[in-house]
């Protein structure tokens, strides 16, 4: 399948030339390439990868382990240098990391010597330097409340369970009001009950904030439940976009409604068929 597949909804692209005219594109990856030089020659992880993500869109990325999903995400975050092609946020090429792209890491990555509030404040202070201290504290507390941690403002990160730590991670990412939210398998290390809880919390905040989100996952159900589009990546080396599936469930979604929807198993089968090839 061609790598320039684009959803019917976004027909106002010039598909032939790969040029995007719309100002609705938040994140644009074009001809993205990643090469790791090795003594035996170059190892090409990603090649000719094109993907446009719209404003207020939630995209999940699914693919086999080691296909380069995380590499792609960390390149978008600016933590991994780009070998070829480019990445643009609202038409501006990215130069290194920055708070316009918030990241929720696979491990919660909280500073263990800080309380949950201080952890969120670390980012808020950086992004809103002109706000008063009280305003910044209010922002941090608001998001901690949103993730259900109103009783744990002053708890040290080490006193929180893995799931609670990841909630702080979510609050920290939303509190800096990024343009794009990047999630690298954020629930991969949690048990399935906690994972369900956190998916609900994530989608609830997202419904309100509508921050463009790109999320890597291994979990087919998670991918369908959260996403507007599921992007399937081919196995590496030289991974690229294999297929894109539109998920046309209405928002806001409930888990129950999604599971009972007639199309659910059709979507599921599509994804599993892709992954098993």
């Amino acid at each position: 399948m061609s790598s320039t597949i684009i959803d019917q909804k976004y027909r106002h692209f010039d598909i032939e030339n790969g040029i995007v005219y719309s100002s609705d594109v938040m994140l644009d990856l074009s001809k993205l390439k990643k090469v790791y030089p090795t003594p035996k020659g170059d190892h090409v992880v990603l090649e000719d990868l094109n993907l446009q993500i719209m404003k207020e869109e939630f995209v999940t990325i699914i693919g086999h382990s080691g296909c380069g999903k995380t590499t792609m995400l960390s390149m978008i975050a600016g933590l991994n240098p780009i070998s070829g092609g480019n990445i643009a946020v609202l038409g501006h090429h990215i130069k290194g990391p920055g708070p316009d792209r918030g990241v929720i890491f696979q491990s919660p990555s909280l500073m263990p010597w800080m309380t949950s509030l201080q952890n969120v404040m670390l980012g808020v202070n950086q992004v809103f330097p002109h706000a008063t201290k009280a305003q910044r504290t209010d922002i941090a507390k608001y998001y901690l409340q949103k993730v259900g941690l109103e009783d744990a403002f002053n708890k040290k990160a080490t006193e929180l369970s893995q799931g609670m730590q990841q909630r702080v991670g979510i609050a920290r990412a939303f509190a800096i009001k990024p343009k794009v939210l990047l999630l690298d398998e954020p629930f991969g290390m949690l048990d399935s009950l906690t994972r369900g809880e956190l998916q609900d919390i994530l989608i609830e905040i997202w419904n309100k904030e509508k921050i463009t989100a790109v999320m890597i996952t291994h979990d087919v159900d998670e991918a369908i439940f959260l996403a507007d589009r599921v992007v399937m990546m081919t196995s590496g080396p030289k991974a690229k976009i294999g297929d894109i599936l539109n998920i046309d469930f209405e928002r806001p979604r409930t888990r129950k409604a999604v599971l009972e929807h007639n199309d659910y198993y059709k979507y599921r089968k599509h994804l599993i068929d892709f992954l098993e090839h």
Binding site: A77, G78, L79, G96, P97, G98, P99, R101, G102, V103, F105, S107, S109, M111, P112, W113, M114, L122, G123, Q126, V127, I176
Partner: peptide, 29 residues
């Protein structure tokens, strides 16, 4: 220092002074 903490500092674009005093020093104490 744990690479995760450094990544957080990078994403938040902490300045060098803040990076040393808020992230690197506490974690190496």
């Amino acid at each position: 220092v744990d690479k995760d903490y450094i990544n957080v500092a990078k994403v938040l674009k902490l300045g060098p002074v803040q990076k040393v005093f808020k992230v690197i020093l506490p974690s190496s104490l």
